[in-house]
Design a protein around this nucleic acid. Structure first.
Lengths: 215, 215
DNA sequence: CCAAAAGTGTTGGCGTTACACCCATGG
DNA sequence: CCATGGGTGTAACGCCAACACTTTTGG
């Protein structure tokens, strides 16, 4: 029976300083000692894949983040120690929930990464950008409650283009994915902003027919 | 180090008798002896995942079929013999290329399946239908050369609704995914049909903005 | 000459984009 | 009272869905 080591690898994204960023760690051991890599861990026997991903997230103090399976990488050369499998997950964490001491690097121009992690990251970024066109995943970059301007800023980073404010608000509200909450946010010398949360039963995919963006 | 058995499982689809069908095998051994299951095999150490999928396809005499990775299943209870991982692939084979002696069952109302194969199949069908809205995957159900009416029939089965002939043809040709070939097909007491092939550099995803279907 | 599938254009309606100003607040 | 970001409506345009008849062949 074929038994190769099985790893769960994570791409944890956030948006900081107007840029998409990914969580990386510095390797303490060979191979690739001193190089950056994505957080990962071997699957415990008897542990479900998603459970392993959540275990790693908890270790990063990012429990509760949005999580979805990305892709499975099994190129025999991906680890110099020998054949292995990496089940990669994509996670999203709001910038305001990032714990101290965590390192996030620009996802589009990352530092050199160990193993096949550059390829994993590339695929994760691609998936994230594609899904921004037709899913509510981008809302996971925000801690509740949030303002419509914050939502627009997230979409602008992910889609990498400016969006029209009036059209954006009209469409976003029409989705039914947001619930307005009590209260407002005062953020300086200007009119206070209304606050929103993710609707309890928000759709994951946007609409059956047609795409919502571009505006 | 965590070493659990790694399998590659296949969902091989075709369209026959106006219905989406999936290739199944009868199990010759326990567990689940005599029950239907999806084709699968353990990953050889040192073998790439996709290479294993193609090896299984070749064993089914379906070499050359369209193939993409679907999802990885690792629920500890998926195999009664103990924890294991299944990397599932989705394949599409033209009805005219099906070898003798292969069993295809209706994909939407399959027989009882061993292991967690019912869940794998469910997810594969869902993915296939979703992708039919915005990708050229449905064209893989046809052996070249094919007629536009055949293409429309495939889309109608996958989307499960009738499509307008004139609108369908206009949009499909506008994609640039098809090349007209020499010759025509005479199929009885009616005007001969023009023949097409997949364009060498056909797009995988349809258009950047908007979706092509519905009509 | 009949049956059967292939092939072909136009129009009205709807949804989308483009666009500029007033509001509420803090300092 | 000034600066700052929050909030709002409409009109022109372009794209899409709806729709029916002619063509070519085999028997």
């Amino acid at each position: 029976m074929a038994r190769v080591p099985v790893f769960v690898d994570l791409t944890v994204f956030t948006i900081r300083e107007g840029e998409l960023r990914v969580l990386v760690e510095k390797r303490a051991r060979d191979p690739f000692r001193g190089l950056w890599c994505l957080p990962h861990a071997p699957l415990d026997p008897g542990e479900a894949l998603e459970a392993a991903a959540r275990r790693i997230l908890a270790g990063l103090r990012c429990a509760g983040a949005y999580l979805e399976q990305l892709y499975t990488f099994g190129d025999p050369g991906r680890d110099p120690r020998g054949p292995s499998i990496a089940v990669a997950y994509l996670a999203v964490v709001p910038a305001r929930r990032i714990p101290e001491g965590t390192t996030f690097q620009p996802a589009q121009r990352p530092p050199r990464l160990a193993f096949d992690h550059a390829r994993i990251l590339e695929q994760a970024v691609s998936r994230l950008r594609t899904k921004s066109e037709y899913s509510t995943v981008p809302l996971r970059f925000l801690a509740e409650p949030f303002t419509l301007s914050e939502v627009q800023a997230v979409y602008e980073v992910l889609l990498d283009r400016p969006l029209d404010k009036r059209n954006f608000r009209r469409k976003m509200l029409a989705l039914g994915a947001l619930d307005q909450t009590e209260g407002e946010r005062r953020g300086g010398a200007h009119r206070p902003a209304r606050l929103f949360r993710l609707a309890p039963k928000h759709p994951y995919l946007l609409k059956e027919r047609g795409i919502l963006f571009p505006f």
